[in-house]
Design a protein around this nucleic acid. Structure first.
Lengths: 360, 360
DNA sequence: CTATCATTCTGCAACGTTTCAGATGATAAT
DNA sequence: ATTATCATCTGAAACGTTGCAGAATGATAG
């Protein structure tokens, strides 16, 4: 834009031509000129280096503040390799339900008080999930990475650990390697969901689980199974149904399921969008939510209980996830031990009380 | 991370020490060394400059591809001022309904084939909306900006035009200044919504409009009013209700409205989340959607007709908005005339057919 | 009075890129 | 034979920053 103006200025060595730089963005050189100090001194003074005199330091910082000096990111990055960028890598097809917004807001909230910028890098699920991660690491285009859709044995985690690149995951792995993560306690969620249905008198339960490749599929399933044993309820298989299916497919599957002779009287569901599709399928089969069958689900936004008040609902706070992930990643970049950067968030039950009777 | 290694290498002038740079990221110097050419020649060859011989150019490009050369963004940025960054500025409190995800995906889809990165910069509605825009312009931290929540007389637009900074808006202004935008045709939407309700036999219509400060409030209201005249229906005031209220407040307002003696028999609503709240309020007042009252609304995701099949629904495609905004902005950065970068997307009606009778 | 030392400040060089102003031959025009 | 023109190529400089090695000053010790 104003490149020519910049090229025009500063040709002479002796007279730095600060007059022409009037409207330009101030740099260290500007401050050096104004204070009569050297550029190096100014640079050090601004970062409170010990070899700068107290008076000088204060003077420099005052001037810098006055003229609104901001370090040039490209200069810093070129010199130090530090990008001051966090890269959020996510699936194009992921989560229609607004989950992304919350996580981004959560991350931004934390980054707002730091020099960090948030770069969002989506990739299509059809492509190699490793690709965007490799890109960031190879080009050094960020100081840290946040990834989601974590698998028990995740190639991205392996790659990042191997390259000693700071990262945090939304979800856990089972690779015997410590890394920063935030996760929702899906085990607790599924178990409590089963107990809730038990209290509602439901004994024949189905599970609409996360995609089987992901870690939290197993957590969910384990929680589900353990609580089944505990409550003495039985599982009605819900074959090949999972959260990654298009909502319309889930609706179909649900309708088919509910038309079977041995249909479930309770369903544990791991996503808000899927729960809506489930209900649609149930009603398509001529059954009534809260009467013939109960559903427990998670939600991040508030309106699910307006959709059907009969739903049992646990809250999952994605902005908390974003905040925790950002905090963990920043600490990791700062060199903290990954073991100390692992958080788990517990389900909070709201909406219909968990001990209400099943008949709505 | 590997900064020390980098500092270690390349001290000698004569022998460039390419051996030690083995594991390092290739730069122009690397290619220059490998091809035996000068750095300048390599730089030019890679961007198809005319003063480079055909053979040389191909040779350089081959080597570059082989070793996986990627220009260093910081280098380019420092030298040219070009950041290859698009900044998306958005409201923290905005749109619970997943609208953000779609728009980000739309933008990313376009940027994927370019060297551009997408930086997301949220700001709280309580702060100055101008602040993040000013930051980007003053620090030159992006080549272009996308903003939303556009007002008829928008200070951000004024600022950006004054500073001749490339931008595109999601929504239109009324400032008599040409700029790149993408907008949904809310005038057409509201008008068609009124006609739809008319065909359903509804004569006493209320409008749940966008926030009154935004441009599309007026578009919506004008479309609504014009179609009222056209169809001979009358308006039932729905005072102080708009989309920016918390959903629970909207529910309350709706319940109050529907308990009034002169309650509407049709409501035009400008947002999916709000429509759900409206329905909740209506049912709270003991009335039945599709019988006592009909609602027309927009949705970006698909599940609204599962919520209540009686809803009249128009689709609003936010990923299209994202794509159009990104395309327009890139062209604007390329110097295109803003007048040629303005797109309007028409409502597409789906779900319940518009000429179905009002009784569901 | 010199040597040593801490304190405080400073040039220079380099990160990777592009632009500017040539340089080098070769070929064409005079 | 001399000059102009052209096609290719090149080194130096600069963008803003920080690390390194060292300079200037004064103080302390020998």
């Amino acid at each position: 834009m104003d490149q020519k103006a910049r090229d025009r200025a500063g040709v002479e060595q002796v007279e730095p031509g600060m007059a022409e730089k009037e409207g330009q963005r101030p740099t260290l050189k500007t401050i050096a000129f104004m204070t009569g100090l050297g550029v190096t001194t100014v640079s050090r003074a601004l970062k409170d280096a010990p070899e700068i005199g107290e008076a000088t330091r204060r003077r420099v910082q005052l001037v810098a503040r006055q003229i609104g000096y901001r370090p040039n990111r490209a200069g810093v990055r070129l010199r130090t390799g530090k990008t001051n960028v966090i890269s959020l890598i996510l699936n194009t097809e992921d989560e229609v339900t607004g989950f992304l917004s919350d996580i981004i807001y959560g991350i931004s909230e934390v980054l707002a008080d730091t020099p960090y910028h948030l770069v969002v890098t989506p990739y299509s699920r059809t492509n190699d999930p490793l690709e965007p991660v490799r890109y960031v690491v190879e080009t050094g285009s960020a100081d840290g990475i946040i990834i989601s859709r974590i698998e028990p044995d995740d190639p991205r985690v392996r790659y990042l650990v191997e390259h000693d690149f700071p990262f945090a995951t939304h979800g856990r792995t089972a690779m015997g390697v410590e890394h920063a993560f935030h996760d929702y306690d899906n085990h607790a969620y599924a178990a409590e969901a089963v107990r809730t249905l038990g209290r509602a008198g439901r004994r024949r339960l189905a599970l609409l689980p996360p995609p089987p490749t992901l870690t939290y599929y197993h957590e969910t399933r384990n929680g589900f199974s353990e609580a089944l044993l505990e409550t003495g309820a039985s599982e009605v298989p819900f074959p090949s149904a999972h959260l990654d299916l298009p909502l319309d497919r889930i609706r179909q599957h649900a309708a088919d399921l509910m038309r079977r002779a041995n249909r479930p009287d309770g369903i544990v569901c791991s996503g808000a969008g899927a729960a809506i599709a489930l209900v649609a399928g149930i009603e398509e089969a001529g059954l009534t939510l809260g009467h013939d069958v109960d559903i427990v689900t998670k939600q991040s936004t508030q309106f699910l209980h307006w959709f059907r008040p009969q739903l049992f609902i646990a809250r999952e706070d994605f902005s908390l996830a974003g905040r925790d992930l950002a905090i963990a990643l920043l600490k990791r970049i700062g060199g903290a031990d990954p073991k100390t950067l692992q958080t788990l968030s517990s389900p909070v039950w709201d909406g219909r009380p968990v001990d209400a009777p099943g008949n709505g």
